[in-house]
Amino acid sequence: MTTARRMSASVAAPEGVGIEVAEQFADATQQRHAAQLGMWAWLLTELLLFAGLFLCAAVLHVTHPAAVARAARHLKVWIGAANTAVLICSSLTMTGAITASRHGWRRWMLRCLLATAALGTLFLLLKGFEYYQDYLEHMTPFLDRPYALAGEPATRLYIDLYFLTTALHALHLTTGVAILLGMTWIARKPRFLHRHQNWIEVYGLYWHFIDLIWIMVFTLIYVVPR
């Protein structure tokens, strides 16, 4: 229903774009609806998962504002900002892939999917570089090595929370890139869009949401407490 309505708004669904109806569903509309809703339900849990971490950071911010500010100023805010921009770009390419898939433009879809995967990888590389910088600056309190702000215990907790939050996000992104590449591999076959167009739609929701989570991480962990 969802996509069908969407398409009727933009273009009529071209021939050769659709989904293969699984046994338990009555029709394609029901299957699309179920798949979309299933992803939304999953995203709900992702949001609450990260909310727990944001809550810990917020409580620490309330109880130890000075330490949190000092710790936040040691985060690599420019790398974080660049990464936010990278993910916003990847969101655009993902939308490109979805749009192309709806029109049956297979080549554009593949290009956009690969671009999205490349941007995701770029994010992970930048993230790795950021971690390496943290390591060099002795901002890794959980490791058995000297810690730059050792005299200020509450900063240690904030830095630990930063690592946990970003690592959890990076884990989601790594999984995301892996799924994306796997899906692209399958989608290279010409008949993919005949059978699994909604994979792209559903996956797109996930990718956008990981982007959304990162925007929150960047604002709430890097910038606001400074």
Binding site: A51, G52, C56
Partner: peptide
Amino acid sequence: PVITIALILLLMERAFGIG
């Protein structure tokens, strides 16, 4: 998900002392 993250934090606290 909230208990998941709470238990992960507990686990990290016990394993790495994140605080």
